[in-house]
């Protein structure tokens, strides 16, 4: 993939026929064929893992053992992923250009979500939530301090009153 394949720009005001509008959104554009190849390539690799793992399982005397279904699904996943890649390369069935809006915030949001369970396990829910919720809110796009306080208050109230007190879920 060359540097020309991935483009970033700053999109201006966009009216979509209705009344919904978006303002100044940075956009990462990736060719659909690259997205298809990356995702289906990964799925093909997962398929291969299931195929090999399934074939390696001992089945005893049964015709359909523990490894049969994983091997079949793995094989099918590989075949279908390869077919999709082939069709995308041959321009028979490829995605149009895939636009990732606010890409840096998106990646940051994913990182925060992935880190959240480990942080909760280490430090407990409430200490983590007091910091995590406003930070995540900022990443998502809340820019007013009132909005950040409101979102944090809603989450903490839900956790304390609904989950802990009403449902009896002991949070870590």
């Amino acid at each position: 993939m060359s540097s020309r394949d991935v483009e970033m720009d700053d999109r201006g005001m966009d009216d979509d026929d209705g009344l919904a509008k978006s303002i100044h959104t940075p956009v990462l554009r990736v060719p659909g064929v690259a997205v298809d190849m990356a995702i289906c390539g990964l799925l093909g690799a997962i398929g291969l893992w299931f195929l090999i793992g399934g074939l390696g399982m001992k089945g005893g005397k049964a015709a359909i053992g523990p490894g049969t279904v994983p091997a079949i699904t793995g094989g099918c996943l590989m075949a279908l992923s390869a077919l999709q890649i082939g069709l995308a390369v041959l321009r028979r069935a490829r995605l149009p250009v895939v636009e990732f809006q606010r890409p840096l915030w998106l990646v940051l949001g994913m990182v925060l979500i992935i880190l959240f369970p480990s942080a909760v396990d280490e430090f407990g829910y409430f200490p983590v939530a007091v910091i995590w919720v406003p930070v995540f809110g900022w990443v998502v796009g809340i820019r007013s301090p009132v909005g950040l306080v409101v979102a944090t208050a809603i989450v903490l109230a839900l956790a304390k009153f609904v989950f802990e007190m009403l449902l009896g879920t002991p949070l870590p």
């Binding site: 909760v120 939530a129 979102a151």
Partner: peptide, 25 residues
């Protein structure tokens, strides 16, 4: 505002999945 909805929904997702079996996993 959609960001407030997203923040609350993300937090409920995490709380809800934990409450399923009280397990951080």
């Amino acid at each position: 505002p959609r960001p407030i909805v997203a923040t609350v929904v993300a937090s409920i997702c995490m709380l809800g999945s934990y409450a399923a079996s009280n397990d951080v996993f």
